[in-house]
């Protein structure tokens, strides 16, 4: 991380840490802590999307499916087999990684938007499985009464506890992503994004790196899914359909595709927009989403972060 990134990191961490103390005394916005827990969970997914889309230049339409794989693996293992949530979570992440690897290898060897097409189909398949495998997933009515989460012997029972736990996880993931981006892999990824043939000519094993990033994004989504399961303690396939994959992409695009900070900003903003501020538009919400996307694409092609900086925040290390 550059010094500038560290400064932003500390500032953001402070802001996030102080946020509950700012909103909780005000009754009208005291539930914003809840909204922020969801925003944090979605932010984990979106960090993965940024790595994949903004740095490796690949579009995945199946992030909600990986989110669902993580969520349902945790739910089934803890709910039906009484496994410890901390064992179920890596199981979900491994399953997602394996699946991403299998889907990614053929799709990412090809140039162009084959991953988008492959994942589009794959996402729909996962959603159908969640709906139809009633014995395992509870079918369309989903699963309820799932266990919560204990951290070091403490049960996360309040929103505040969840808030700090989820955002702590987000910052850990953020550090990890920064680390990846400033390593050889990160430089290779940016080279792929700029010009794949040139990168290949320079000896960058493009296919391998692309698959690795795709697997990373799937793992992040799966971990987020596990957290979602234990936070909400119930699941329903409608939270993991294609619409959600598109929403994740939208969050990242609004924030700024080529910046991890953009992913955070976009996720928090769009979660509030979707759950709080656009409630009045109800059925027209999708139109408003479209309008937001259009405005961002036309006037802020680098996302909202470009308002704060003239150059992309992440420099070449």
């Amino acid at each position: 991380m550059t010094r500038k990134d560290w400064r932003i990191f500390l500032l953001t961490a402070l802001l996030i840490a102080a946020f509950p103390w700012m909103v909780q005394p005000v009754k009208a916005v005291s539930h914003y802590v809840d909204v922020m827990v969801f925003a944090g969970i979605f932010a984990l997914v979106c960090l993965g999307v940024t790595m994949l889309m903004g740095y490796a230049g690949q579009v995945s339409m199946a992030q909600a499916a990986f989110f669902g794989i993580g969520a349902y693996t945790s739910a089934i293992l803890t709910g039906r087999f009484a496994l410890d949530p901390w064992l179920a979570m890596p199981a979900g992440a491994s399953l997602a990684a394996l699946v991403a690897w299998v889907v990614g290898i053929p799709a990412l060897r090809l140039k162009g938007h084959y991953l988008a097409m492959a994942t589009l189909g794959f996402g729909v398949i996962v959603h159908i499985i969640l709906n139809e495998e009633v014995e395992w997933t509870g079918g369309p009515s989903g699963m309820a009464d799932l266990p919560g989460l204990h951290v070091l012997g403490w049960k996360l029972s309040t929103e505040l506890a969840w808030y700090y736990f989820v955002w702590g996880t987000v910052f850990l993931a953020l550090l990890f992503c920064f680390h990846v981006l400033h390593s050889r892999v990160g430089r290779a990824l940016r080279a792929i994004h700029e010009e794949e043939s040139a990168a290949e000519a320079m000896g960058v094993p493009t296919a391998r790196y692309k698959v690795q990033v795709f697997v990373l994004s799937a793992v992040l989504a799966a971990v987020a899914g596990s957290l979602y399961t234990h936070f909400v303690t119930c699941l329903n396939p409608s939270s993991f359909n294609l619409m959600w994959s598109i929403r994740f992409i939208l969050m990242v695009m609004v924030g700024g595709m080529q910046s991890l900070w953009g992913a955070l900003l976009g996720t928090v903003l769009m979660t509030f927009v979707g759950n709080e501020w656009l409630h009045v538009f109800a059925e027209f919400e999708i139109l408003v989403y479209g309008a937001i996307l259009l405005v961002v694409a036309l006037f802020l092609p680098k996302g909202l972060v470009s308002l704060f900086t003239r150059k992309p925040i992440v420099h070449n290390a």
Binding site: H31, N275, A282
Partner: peptide, 17 residues
């Protein structure tokens, strides 16, 4: 009265509120 837009996550948030 709150509208959950037939979305489980939004219903969850609404009841929390």
């Amino acid at each position: 009265m709150l509208d959950d837009e037939t979305d489980p996550t939004k219903a969850n948030l609404a009841v929390k509120k």
